[in-house]
Every structure is written in structure tokens, then in C-alpha cells.
Design a protein around this nucleic acid. Structure first.
Lengths: 334, 334
DNA sequence: TTGTATGCGTTATCAT
DNA sequence: ATGATAACGCATACAA
């Protein structure tokens, strides 16, 4: 072994009395090497506890077998699931995932993406908040890349997107069907494209259903945001609330309970995403189901096709339509 | 640019009419270079959109600026928080995190750890389930490494550990103080060292408090495990339940609610970890608080000290004592 | 089948 | 201050 404790291919070659090329061939399972010799090399490699340097290998091969995943907030269960799904899928193909969380400096998201990409073979860009023009150049600079949870018209980048417009409309319709006429939407981050989609969907819905009134209230994407909104929600006079996501809904449920309001007796609440906890909460949370881990899973599949173009090519863009999961937090208005 | 679209240092050098060494010096902010020349090089670098190859840099420098994090289950909020904490801390020092989730093949955990370490400068081993002898050799093979959430007597490896023995005893005491005399512990995975610690703590507690009876029931670590245990819990006759963790507690709360049992009226439930959702659940969950993100944060600090030995050295082992957070899920027995 | 030589893109050593 | 050159550890084209 060399001084720093790591065996190199040269040392194995020397001990086995062969060339480095032969060792390399053996380690990579190349057929064109004498079985007896190969065995001897393997023995020596094992004895010296040798395993090829991933870094040197990456430099020589031009690929790192690593992909980057950029998310806006690792604390959000939605993105955690995307990470989990992508990680499992990538792992099966021998790839690993490098995480990048932009929450500390959202304004440097683009920079972060490009930097992350330089260490990886490809990138998954999840719910990027950056402006469109910036996004376009980032996508250009980080290919191969797949975009998750954000749309970009006229882009050749593989995209996995959730139909938030349809989703929020379905949620609103659910409330309307229950008899609610005064709805309140707790909006997510201003830079969030999916929030914009929800707002757009609700405005359309409002036009088509003049019998209902929809109010909008800036809120956020985290539990605390929802919790803080409790008072404003109660004062709004609405009989049903559409939360930006399940986290916000949870925070709100907590605040409502503390205020002594009954859900769904006094107020109905619907979330978005269907995170694991939604079904176990009390009252269980009515929400729009989004296949979070599958998004990560599929994102990897797209990337895999881009990295190792084979026979089966996946379509460039895939839509996921959230489905309503009606649970205990919604009911008839008081 | 070369054919694959990535500019190399050689091209920048050629365009700027200088040597690669000079470009390297400029890119690394070395002072010993003529300001005018440096400026020219920078201009060219910007024009060619050059940024140094991380891989080549890693090979030359012998470090990757990446650390690995191995967890038993990325789906568990506890580990997600450790990841989040470690990631934020590492990022501030210019390091990135590579994730490894052993959930798919727990029996290959050791292998996974070693493989992950080969791509990184160091490793955070979180709640490893592997047997002690195996763990010892893995720790040896992956240094620098820090061990989180598992103890190893007579080991020089920096360790961050939660005092589960004290924690579970405090939880049991809380129930005893409320008047409960029949307790039930829903046990975690058999390979979990922290589960063993809890069991040991409870047995001690039992001995010291003959007035109380503690039953043990194999359960698991996930929401579904807790949910499945609902029936058995009701049939046990216990008036209070100590769940392995908050996830199990949540699953149980859901099952109890479905069965029409009132918490804490009919049954008290206490969790462990104090994940974000614990306080927003209804009833809010009484639990033992563990500073999850801080564990990740501190783990990085230890690693950082190992990687770049400076003045301030952190103690080799750090204990975290969970604190009781009494909320709504516990009360007097019926 | 095996070995030799070269390249991957950087940084660092040693001249100048 | 700058440049030539040798690592870093591996994979591969080409020779033998």
C-alpha cells in the first residue's frame, strides 16, 4: 500500500507480476485474459484490499456514475420522497445521488445547479424557483437534465410535471359539491411555479362558478406558515380552505384545534401532495394525491435514457394528474 | 471548447497565450501572478465559459469535497432531518453530501458503506444496523468516519449518540406519574441498537418500579407497523403505550381513532424523536425530543475537524439526552 | 493474450 | 512572475 493507505493499480500489478493494463482488465471483467492469470491477479487484489479509485476512473472514463438532485427544501416531505424515489431507482443502476438544497440561498439557485452538475453526469432539477430566462440558460448548461414539477413551454428538456391546475380545480370542485360557497386559498411561495398554476386554476374555476367566492391569502409552504394563518382563516368567514400543500394544512389544523374550531364541522380543509402523514392525521386530511416517490423514480429513468441511450426511449414529457383523496377534514359547511 | 462541450484549462491557456500553470494559479486566486495577466486570463475563462473539472481536481488534490451519509431509511423523518442538518453544515464549508440508503438491502449495509466511502472524503454512519464485529471493521475501513446514533464501547471513532436509555425511562416515568400501572412498549427493529437500549432501559425501570407492569410487543419502525399494532394494543389491557418512535405512534393513533378509542381518555400514547409533525398532530403527540438536525450538523463538525485539523477540536463522543415534551396524547388512566 | 504508451484535466514542483 | 513537466490512478488503442 502507498503511504496514505490506499492501494493503487500499480501496486497490484507489481505484486502480481503483470502490467497495470492486465489488472485493469481483470477488475473490469474483460474476457480476454488468461483464467489462471486473472485468478492470480484477483488473489493479489483481494490480499492487498484493492479496489479501483472511483475518482481516477471517473476522470479516465469521463463519467462519475453520480447524478445531482436540486430541491428547494429538503425539509419538505414532498421533496424527500422525490429524493427517496430517485435514489432507489438510481442505485439499482449503480448510480448515486448528490443532494443540493437551495433553501439557504434561494437566490443562488441557478449557480447551485450549475455547480452541482459539474460533479455529476446529470441533474434532476426539482421545483426550481428561478425566473424563466434564468431557467432556460441553466437547463442549457446542465444537460443532461430533467425538470420536475415545473413546466417550460417550448423546451426540449424532459419534464415530469404535476397538473396542478387540474388538481386544485378538483379540490375546489370537491368543496363546491359539499355545499361550500366561500372558499379561501392559502397561497404558497410567490416564486413557486406550482403555486402560480394553482392560482390560475382557481381563477378559472371562479369564473366558471360565479355562485362561489374564492379568496386568496398569501401564506407559504411550511407548517409554521399554515399555523400562523389560523387567525386570518377564522376571520375570513370562509367555510372551506384550500391549503397550498399538506404541510400548510397541518399547521392550519393545529391552529384551528387550538382555537377550538371543529374540522370539518366549522371549517373544511383540503391539502395537496398526500404526504404519508395525511392519512394518519386526525382528522385525516383530505388532499390531492401526487405520486411523489414515483416522480423521483421516473426522473431517474429519463436521465438513464439520456445517459445510456438504449432501445426504449421515454416520452419527453409526462403529466401526472393528482387524484382526490377524500378523508375526514372535509364535510358539509356549518 | 472541446467536442463534448466542456472547456479545459489547456484551451483557456492557449487562447490567453499563457501556460496551464498560470491559468490554474489565476483560477485558484494565487497572488503570485501579474494583475494584468490575471485579468486577461479571467476574461478568456469567462468568455469560454470555463470552470475547472471537479473530477480532475479531485484526482490531483486527493480530495473530493464530498462526504457520504449512510442511513437505514430515507423515508424516516428522523434521518431526513439528520441529512438536512448535515447537508446545510457541510455546504457552508463547501462540501456536498452523497446519500446512501440501505433500506433496499439492509444485509449489505457494510458493503454499501465502504463503497460509498470510496467516492468521498469521509463518511457519516447513521444508525447502522450491522453486527458489532462487522461495524468495527467498517469503521476501520472508512475513516475518517463519525458514528451517529449507535454506541461502540472501546472505539476511538467520534460518536454522536442519543441517550435512549435515559429517554425511554423518562417517558415511562412520565406515564407512571400520571398514574399508569400497565405499560406496553411497541418495539422497533430487532437489529436496531437504539431499540435494544430502550428495551434495556425499560427492564431496569421495571425492576425499580415493581408497582408497574411493562409488556413488550414486537412492532417495527414505520407508520404502518404502528397502525397494524392497533388491535393488539387494545387487547393488551395496557393503559399507556410507549411507541418505538413517533412514526409508530402516529400509526397507532390512527388505528385507535378508527377503533373508536379515545386518546388520552382510554389510552395514553408517547412517541420518540419529536419529529415536526408530532406537535401538529391531534391529539398532539407527547414524545421525547431528539435534536435530529443538530445530530447531522454536529456530525459534520466532527468530520470537518478530522478532515482539516485546526485549533478547536471537538470531544470524541457527545451524548444527547432526550427531553420530555408533554403534549396532548398522554393523560391520566381511565 | 499481454504489455506499452498515452490521455483524462488538474495541481504542484522546480526551474528560469 | 511564468513556464515546462511530472504526478494523481485509471482505462484503452495499439503493438507485439
Amino acid at each position: 500500500m502507498s503511504s496514505d493507505g490506499v492501494t493503487t493499480i500499480a501496486e497490484v500489478a507489481r505484486h502480481a507480476g503483470v502490467s497495470r493494463a492486465t489488472v485493469s482488465r481483470v477488475m473490469n471483467g474483460r474476457a480476454s485474459v488468461d483464467p489462471a492469470l486473472a485468478e492470480r491477479v484477483r488473489q493479489v487484489a483481494t490480499r492487498l484490499n484493492y479496489s479501483p479509485s472511483r475518482v481516477a476512473r471517473s476522470l479516465s472514463l469521463g463519467r462519475t456514475q453520480t447524478i445531482g438532485l436540486l430541491v428547494p427544501d429538503l425539509g419538505n416531505p414532498m421533496f424527500q420522497q422525490v429524493l427517496r424515489g430517485a435514489n432507489q431507482a438510481a442505485r439499482r443502476s449503480g448510480y448515486r445521488i448528490l443532494v443540493a438544497d437551495s433553501i439557504e440561498e434561494p437566490q443562488r439557485e441557478a449557480e447551485l445547479a450549475i455547480e452541482a452538475r459539474r460533479r455529476c453526469d446529470a441533474l434532476i432539477l426539482c421545483s426550481p424557483r428561478m425566473p424563466e430566462t434564468e431557467l432556460i440558460s441553466v437547463l442549457q448548461a446542465t444537460r443532461p437534465v430533467v425538470l420536475v414539477n415545473r413546466e417550460l413551454a417550448a423546451s426540449a428538456v424532459p419534464t415530469l410535471t404535476v397538473d396542478y391546475v387540474h388538481g386544485i380545480r378538483a379540490a375546489a370542485q370537491h368543496l363546491l359539491d359539499l355545499g361550500h360557497r366561500r372558499l379561501l386559498y392559502l397561497a404558497g411561495p410567490a416564486q413557486s411555479a406550482s403555486n402560480a398554476a394553482r392560482v390560475g386554476g382557481l381563477r378559472d374555476f371562479q369564473r366558471e362558478h360565479p355562485e362561489a367566492a374564492i379568496e386568496f391569502l398569501a401564506c407559504g409552504s411550511m407548517i409554521e406558515d399554515g399555523h400562523r394563518a389560523g387567525r386570518a382563516v377564522l376571520e375570513s368567514g370562509a367555510s372551506a380552505v384550500l391549503a397550498f400543500n399538506d404541510l400548510v394544512a397541518f399547521g392550519l389544523l393545529g391552529a384551528l384545534d387550538e382555537a377550538g374550531a371543529d374540522v370539518p364541522g366549522d371549517l373544511s380543509v383540503v391539502g395537496f401532495d398526500d404526504i404519508d402523514f395525511a392519512r394518519y392525521a386526525r382528522p385525516s386530511l383530505t388532499t390531492m394525491h401526487v405520486p411523489q416517490a414515483e416522480l423521483g423514480h421516473r426522473a431517474w429513468e429519463h436521465l438513464h435514457d439520456l445517459l445510456e441511450p438504449g432501445e426504449g426511449s421515454t416520452p419527453p414529457t409526462q403529466y401526472y394528474r393528482p387524484t382526490l383523496i377524500a378523508r375526514g377534514s372535509t364535510g358539509a359547511p356549518p
